[in-house]
């Protein structure tokens, strides 16, 4: 939780219109990135701003839209950054970043199978956590039901 607004501001000015500041609770450096600019932003973060480590990559179903949340950090300048991308519920697609951060590989497979988000350019999108013969859609989506799924009564 660093109070380093320089980072967010510099990102906003470098990618004008594509990156905007996010106010999260608790306070942290966070930006919202347009889907089209994801690869450029992460390349810039890795090559110019010393963010060399992808800690996590998670999907979120916010009901009216989907999100991917990236947490990246820097081992040299000791900073963290949260990057969010909003995606539509219908046919969500995003570019892979697994050639920029190798750690994204399995995270993206997970997001792909559990949320049904298309990962363009990913080399290997086999199911990672779900059974090999899974045919029942994307179980982490809100309102999903399937075989043997028992909804908790109110």
């Amino acid at each position: 939780m660093s109070d380093n607004s320089d980072l967010v501001q510099s990102l906003e000015s470098t990618f004008a219109g594509k990156v905007s500041k996010l106010d999260l609770v608790p306070a942290q450096d966070a930006v919202l990135v347009e889907v089209s600019a994801v690869r450029d932003v992460f390349k810039h973060l890795r090559d110019s701003l010393k963010f060399d480590y992808l800690s996590s990559l998670a999907g979120v179903d916010a009901k009216d839209h989907l999100e991917i949340v990236y947490h990246i950090s820097s081992t040299s300048i000791k900073q963290k950054l949260t990057v969010k991308v909003k995606l539509p519920t219908e046919n969500p697609e995003i570019d892979t970043i697994c050639d920029i951060y190798r750690a994204a590989d399995w995270f993206e497979r997970e997001v792909h199978e559990l949320y049904g988000i298309g990962i363009k350019g990913h080399p290997d999108l086999r199911p990672l956590l779900l059974p090999e013969d899974w045919d029942q859609g994307h179980p982490m989506r809100k309102g999903w039901t399937g075989r043997d799924f028992i909804v908790k009564p109110e």
Partner: peptide, 10 residues
């Protein structure tokens, strides 16, 4: 994991 679980055998 009886309720609301997609992955667990009951």
């Amino acid at each position: 994991f009886y309720y609301d679980s997609y992955s667990v055998l009951k």
